[in-house]
Design a protein around this nucleic acid. Structure first.
Lengths: 330, 330
DNA sequence: TTGTAGGCGTTATCAC
DNA sequence: GTGATAACGCCTACAA
C-alpha cells in the first residue's frame, strides 16, 4: 500500500507537505506541489478512506434509504443521485430494504458506524417519519423524496400528487367516462392518500359519481393491480375508466382487462402514475402521469451537497412538475 | 460520540478489555464481559468503522459492480446479495454504472481507497475482464455473475446460456414453427454469443432454416426489441416465431407485433429470456427462460463470505439451473 | 514554505 | 484476566 509517507520520501519532503499538496491547500510551493502530484500519480497513490475519515470526522458518504430496490420506480432516482455523487466525489451507501431496516438498526449504523455526512430518504411511507426526528436532533442533513414536509427545517422533493391525480381523473372525465374506478395503493403511504383525494375531488368537481365502492386497494405491485381490476370487473361491471395509483398496478390491470376479453381503451380506459420506462411498451401504451424521477434523484444530491458545502441552508422544499403523458390506454 | 474509552471509564476497566469484550475475544471474565456489554447498550455505543478499518485493514465491505442498475435484470440479484450481506454483517458498496467506470477509476477506489474485502462483478460484458487481472494480482477475492471462466482461480456463477437458448428455440420448433428469427443482444456480451449459438444449434439439429438474415441485433433494451421486431416484420414477413435474447427486448417485440396488427402467439410466437417480474403481466404473458437471479445474488455473497472466512478456496464454478417458463406468448 | 508532533478510535502485542 | 503501549494512515495546529 502506497502512503503519503512513501511519497514524502520519494519527493524529499515531509508527509504533511504531501497531504497539503494533494488536498490543494495553501502553503505549498507550486513546483513542489506539482512534483508531489506527479509522484503520487506515478506511484498509483490513492488515499486511505478510513484514515482520512478517522481524522476529519467526515466520511464523504451519503446514505440512501428506500423500501425496496426491486421496485422499478427507484432505479432512475438512483441513477440521478449517482450522476451527481460521482461528480462531487461522494460515495453512496444504500439501504435497499425495509426488511433489513426492521431487523438491524440501519439508520444508527449509517450515522454512527459509517458516519455518513448526509442522507436521502425516498418514499412516503409513514415508517419513514421515525427517522427524521433522530436526524434532526443529530443535526445530520437529509432530504426526503416523495414527501412534502411542513417542518421548515427539513428538505424535501415532491410532486403535487393530489393535483396530478386530479388531472389524470379529469382527463378520463373529459373523455366522457361516467363511472371511473380508482386502484389505490397502501394507505400507509402519504402519496396514496393524496392521489385518492385528487381522484375524488375531480369526480366531485365534475359532478361524476363518487363512491367508496369505486375505490380498490393494492400495494403498488403488478399482481395487486391485476386482482383489483378483476374485482372491479365483477363488482362494478359498468365502469369504463380506471385511474391506477401507479404504473406497476396499471400493468396488472391491463392484463386483467385483456384476459376478461375487453379492449383498452374502447371498453375500459386506463390511466397510470409514474411513467416507468416500460409504460411506453404496454399494450396499448399506457397513458400516465410522469414523475421526473431522474431529476428527483439529481436534485436530492444537489441539495445535500450544497448544504454540506455550506452553500445552502436546511429547509429547502422543492415541488417538481409532473406531466400527463397521453398514449393509447385512455 | 460514545467510544470504548467512555465505556471503559464507566465500567472501571481499560479500553482494551472493552474492545475484547465487545468483540467476544478470549481473555475476559464472563461477568465483566456482560457488564461491559450492558453498558455499551445502555450508552448506545456503535463502533467507529473508520477506526476499526484502519487498524484491522479489513473494511467489512464488498464492492458490487454492474453496468446499469436501471436494468430490471439486476434488482433481484441485488436483493439476494443484500439478504446474505445483512446477515453476515458485510456492507455492500455499489458501482451502478459503466459511465462512472469510464471516468473515474471505480475499481481502484473500491480496492485502495475503500479497501473492500471482496467484489462481485455482474455482467458478461467484455469490459469486465479488465478487472479480473487486477483483482487476481492483488489477491482480492471476487465472484463473477453471468460468466463461466476457464481460469481455475476465479469464482463464477452462471447458467448454461447456450443450452437455455437451445431449449427455447427447440420449444418453438416443436410448436411447428418453420421460420424462427432471433433478436440478439450486443455482441460485446458473452451471453449474447452463447444464446445466439444455442439458437443456431437448435435450428441446425432440427433441420430448420438457419440464416444470418434471421438474426437481428439490439442492446437489450425495450426499444431495441421494438425496432428489431419491426425490421423482422418487414424483412422476414413469413416468420412465425421469434426467440428474443432477453425479456426487455421481448416486451418491445410484443409491442411492435401488436401495432402491426398481428396476434401473439397465433401469428407470431415469442419466447424471451430472464423471466423478469413483469413478464407474467405482458399481453399475452411471456413464455421465457427463467434465470434464478435472486439465487445468483445470494450465492455470490455466500461464496465470497466463505472465502473471506477461510471456509472455501477460490475457483468455485457454479452453474445454476435455468427453466423454461411456458406462458401464452408461445 | 516546510517540518514536527499529536491525535482521530480501534485493535494487537506484550507485560503484569 | 487485565492494562499499558504502540500502531493503522492521515490531517492540522504550531513551530521553525
Amino acid at each position: 500500500m502506497v502512503t503519503i509517507k512513501d511519497i514524502a520520501r520519494r519527493a524529499g519532503v515531509s508527509p504533511s507537505v504531501v497531504s497539503r499538496a494533494l488536498n490543494n491547500k495553501y502553503g505549498v510551493k507550486e513546483s513542489t506541489k506539482q512534483l508531489i502530484k506527479s509522484i503520487a500519480r506515478e506511484m498509483n497513490y490513492y488515499p486511505n478512506a478510513a484514515a482520512r475519515r478517522l481524522v476529519t470526522r467526515k466520511s464523504g458518504m451519503i446514505g440512501v434509504m428506500m423500501a425496496d430496490i426491486s421496485e422499478p420506480f427507484y432505479t432512475q432516482i438512483i441513477k440521478g443521485m449517482e450522476y451527481v455523487a460521482s461528480r462531487t466525489g461522494y460515495t453512496l451507501l444504500f439501504s435497499n430494504s425495509y426488511d433489513n431496516l426492521e431487523k438491524t438498526n440501519v439508520l444508527q449504523k449509517m450515522i454512527v458506524t459509517e458516519n455518513v455526512d448526509g442522507l436521502v430518504i425516498v418514499g412516503s411511507n409513514r415508517q419513514d417519519t421515525r427517522f427524521t426526528g433522530i436526524l434532526l436532533e443529530k443535526q445530520i442533513p437529509f432530504v426526503l423524496i416523495e414527501r412534502n414536509s411542513k417542518n421548515d427545517k427539513v428538505n424535501c422533493i415532491w410532486i403535487d400528487n393530489k393535483k396530478a391525480a386530479y388531472h389524470a381523473t379529469k382527463f378520463l372525465i373529459e373523455k366522457g367516462h361516467k363511472k371511473i374506478a380508482h386502484i389505490a395503493g397502501n394507505l400507509q403511504n402519504q402519496v396514496t392518500v393524496e392521489r385518492l383525494a385528487g381522484y375524488k375531488q375531480a369526480l366531485k368537481d365534475a359532478g361524476v359519481t363518487e363512491s367508496n365502492r369505486l375505490v380498490f386497494y393494492g400495494n403498488y405491485l403488478c399482481e395487486d393491480g391485476y386482482h383489483a381490476m378483476q374485482e372491479i370487473l365483477s363488482k362494478q361491471p359498468d365502469c369504463t375508466g380506471v385511474f391506477v395509483a401507479n404504473d406497476s398496478m396499471a400493468y396488472g390491470a391491463l392484463q386483467a382487462i385483456h384476459e376478461a376479453g375487453f379492449v383498452v381503451p374502447k371498453d375500459i380506459a386506463v390511466v397510470g402514475f409514474d411513467d416507468l420506462e416500460f409504460s411506453a411498451f404496454t399494450n396499448p401504451p399506457l397513458t400516465t402521469i410522469r414523475q421526473p424521477r431522474y431529476e428527483m434523484g439529481k436534485k436530492s444530491m444537489d441539495i445535500l451537497t450544497k448544504i454540506l458545502h455550506g452553500e445552502a441552508k436546511n429547509g429547502i422544499n422543492l415541488c417538481l412538475p409532473f406531466e400527463l403523458v397521453v398514449r393509447n390506454s385512455a
